[in-house]
Design a protein around this nucleic acid. Sequence first.
DNA 1: GCTTGACCTGGAGTCCGCTCCAGGTCGCAG
DNA 2: CTGCGACCTGGAGCGGACTCCAGGTCAAGC
Lengths: 151, 151
Amino acid sequence: MSTTTYSVGEVSARTGFSVDTLRYYERLGLIEPVERSVGGRRMYRDEDVGWLDFVSCLRDTGMPIERMREFAELCRDGEHTVPERVDLLAAHGQRVEAEIEVLRTKLAAIRHKIEYYEGVLALRDGQGPDQGSTGQDGQQAGESSEEGRRA
Amino acid sequence: MSTTTYSVGEVSARTGFSVDTLRYYERLGLIEPVERSVGGRRMYRDEDVGWLDFVSCLRDTGMPIERMREFAELCRDGEHTVPERVDLLAAHGQRVEAEIEVLRTKLAAIRHKIEYYEGVLALRDGQGPDQGSTGQDGQQAGESSEEGRRA
DNA sequence: GCTTGACCTGGAGTCCGCTCCAGGTCGCAG
DNA sequence: CTGCGACCTGGAGCGGACTCCAGGTCAAGC
């Protein structure tokens, strides 16, 4: 069983992190110091890649680097930190859920606006073409009559 | 019908934008120059607040300021820009949907990890308390055997 | 009239998360 | 042995989105 390893470039391709970011994360202690070849080059193992995949979950869900670092530290500190890790992840999970909810709500408002615009277009195309290019549509005025208050 | 107006502080409280941010957005042309009192103070009207509510939808769904500015400009340029506005918003909507999808997927992976940890805890509490604090749990090693590859 | 707090301006400063750079090494192909 | 491309380091630079500051004005209450 030859323990295959990957260069930083390969890992970059696999994980989507840029080469610079991989080195940056390592400096920050977000990744354990990666094994090196004789010539000093990084040799990532499968576990490293697995960890990076998880880090990408954290990052892509908006966890700040500092908190990821804390989490990494907990992982390094041994199994007795598992409860804390759960707390940290669960708290993050809640934030992500809340974030998703915000996105859904606000996206709905955006879609609503699109529909309003499409209504405007349908109306315009249906009856008389282009009635005065500069109507009472000054940024907020025009459509606010339709949507006004309500985030 | 007295057209009520709001001070920058009131609008800040209502919209959630900080006072500084409100002024900043106005400077950038993201909001039309707001009406002023004799003494030079901003007096926001309901339409302004409505527009800000919509801006918060764009911002909170991650639209960069520059694109918001473009959108604001289209709104100012008159009704003939409605198709472009729709395009801009629709494109943004797609990105937001994609983003939500990413969040869901990655959140699922995080939950999976939490469950794994809870399994570890249940196991540990069930049979023999704390078996060696510094096991083979060096950051990625331990749990990678469980989750390994797969973002 | 005086105090106090909210407001004004232009510009500088901050924080985050990378990203780029210079100057040097490694190692494989030809 | 010579390229050449991928890699190394420490540190500087960048883009985005605010946030803060100094120094001044305004307006309502006492």
